[in-house]
């Protein structure tokens, strides 16, 4: 799936951390989903992987155990499936990495209402960060909020507008603690986003703050 209209991309810091393997799972999922939609970031990731390969090739080494080659050959002969090759089918709707977490297409998402027509579905990832799908009806808004950490918001369908810009399919917004924003879904269509956060959001009005523990936003 290649989307040529993408104008909001991943930052160097995120691509480097994804390449190094240091991101929380929820962030890796969002990065992998964006890259599935964006050839430019795919190419940039290849450069960051090459940095990793170069560092590996030129770094110091640590001697292996005396029988390590024989032990590895035994592993191979034993046919130990060290890393099962994931079926990398190419999708036409939801990108493959995200589909693995939903267990199907967007039709199979089990949405939970969070008020004002907005719905969410929290995806099963490690607990150091949270990934959720957000459904924002056309013209509706997600309550004004700030962030203690980083929030990634990737548009899968429809579009939203906030204080920063207009975000369409494949666009990703990288928000840090400096940004308070009120994403509003484009009037033309319902908006579905994949959002990852590494700290709870801070809502600016009292009602959403009360709701926060229940929503796990």
């Amino acid at each position: 799936m290649t989307e040529t209209m993408i104008k909001h991309h991943l930052t160097d810091a995120l691509l480097m951390a994804y390449s190094a393997g240091t991101l929380p799972e929820a962030f890796s999922l969002t990065v992998a989903t964006h890259i599935s939609m964006c050839d430019e970031c795919r190419a940039r990731l290849a450069s960051f992987d090459t940095v990793g390969g170069t560092l590996l090739d030129r770094c110091e080494s640590v001697e292996m155990g005396a029988d390590s080659l024989a032990a590895t050959m035994a592993l191979i002969r034993g046919g130990a499936a060290v890393e099962k090759p994931a079926p990398r089918r190419v999708s036409h709707g939801v990108p493959a990495p995200l589909r693995d977490y939903i267990g199907g297409d967007l039709d199979s998402v089990r949405w939970r209402p969070v008020g004002m027509g907005v719905k969410q579905a929290i995806l099963p990832t490690s607990r150091d960060a949270t990934a959720r799908l957000l459904f924002i009806p056309a013209g509706a808004s997600v309550p004004d909020h700030g962030h203690r950490g980083t929030e990634l918001t990737l548009v899968l369908q429809g579009a939203f507008v906030d204080e920063v810009d207009h975000f369409g399919p494949g666009d990703i917004e990288v928000a840090n603690e400096d940004l308070n924003h009120t994403p509003v879904a484009d009037i033309g269509a319902d908006c579905i986003c994949l959002a990852a956060t590494d700290a709870p959001l801070r809502f600016r009005s009292i009602i959403p703050r009360l709701a926060q523990p229940f929503l796990r936003i």
Binding site: S36, A86, R88, P97
Partner: peptide
């Protein structure tokens, strides 16, 4: 996988 005990979602192939 082994040190951080996490999954790593990969982009889909071209």
């Amino acid at each position: 996988d082994a040190l951080r005990k996490q999954k790593r979602p990969e982009p889909e192939d071209l």
